[in-house]
Amino acid sequence: MSGIQISDLSKQWGTVSAVHQVSFEVEPGTLTVLLGPSGCGKSTTLRLIAGLDEVSSGTIRISGRDVTNASPADHGVAMVFQSYALFPHLSVKENIIFGLRVRRVDAAERERRLKRASDILNLGELLDRTPNQLSGGQQQRVALGRAIVAEAPVCLMDEPLSNLDAKLRASMRVEIRALQQRLGLTMVYVTHDQVEAMTMADKIVVMNQGRIEQIATPRELYGRPATTFCARFIGTPPMNLIPARRVHGYERSPDGCLIGVRPEDIAVGTEGVEAVVEGVEYLGADELVAARIGDARVIVRQPARSQTPEGTIRLVWPQTAAHLFGPDGRRLD
C-alpha cells in the first residue's frame, strides 16, 4: 500500500487562497496527473504533498501514514523538479547517489542501486560528467535517476518536460510512462499540457483557481466533461459551447444553459442549426471551419476532402454528442 490520500487540503498565502479544499486519492502503482492552467494551484498541491510548503488545513496520507506536518524527508517521496535541481559541482554519479550518501546507505547497496538506475536510463557513459556537459534530455534522465535510486514509494514530478523541445518531449513522455509501469511507481505528475495528461495518466485531476473541476480517466474526461471549464480545456480546438435556446429541442431550457459539442462531432448538413461561415483553416488532412451561431463562435472539424462551405450553412450533430451544461457551468445529465 503506497497510495496517497488527500483530504480537504488548503493552502493560503496571506489572504490569497492558492489551494482550496482539495481532495483526491492516488491508487498505488498508478499515475495521476494534476492538470490546469498556470496559477491553478497544481504545483502548490504537489509541493504540499512533498512537504516543501506548510499545509494550511486538511490532511495528507502517504502509504496510510499521516504526513501532513512531517518534514520533507519523512514524506517518503522522491521528486523531479522542473529545473531538474542537479548539483552543478557534482558528477552525474554523485548527483544520483547524493541522497544515499546523506542517508548513509552502505557502499555496496549504493553501487547496486546506481547500477540499476543507470541501466534503466542508459546513463552508463555519462556517470563521470558534470551536469553542464549534458544536454537537456540527459539532465532530465539524471534527475529521474536520482528519483529512482531513492526507491521511495511515491514519485512526484513538477512539469518535468517543460524545458525540452517538442520531439524529445514526446519520447520522454513515453519513456516516463513505461518506467512508471515497469517499476510500479505511484506517481503524481503536474503539467499544463493536455497532451501529456491524456497520453500518460491513469487518472487526471483537473484544477482551476485552486479548486478541483473534475477527477476522471482521460477517456471520461474527454467524453463526459463535468464542467464547461473542462470541456474547453481539453481538446484542440476546444469544445464548442452554444446557447441551448438556439438549438432545436432545447428551446425551453433555462436561461444560460449551454450545449457543448466537439468540433469533430459537427457536420455540415441540409437541416439543423443555421450558422454563418467566417473562415476556413486548412490543416492538410482536416480543415477547421469557423462559423457563427448568433453570438456564439463555433468551430467545425471536417475532412479537407469535403466541399469547403461558404455563406449560410446548417450544422448537425448526433444527439449523443451533445453535452448539456447548466447556468453554473456544471453538467446537467
Binding site: A50, G51, L52, S71, P72, A73, H75, V77, A78, M79, F81, A85, F98, G99, V102, R103, R146, A150
Partner: peptide, 8 residues
C-alpha cells in the same frame, strides 16, 4: 529543496 527531500 531537492536536498531536503533526500533528508540532508
Amino acid at each position: 529543496e531537492a536536498a531536503a527531500l533526500e533528508g540532508a
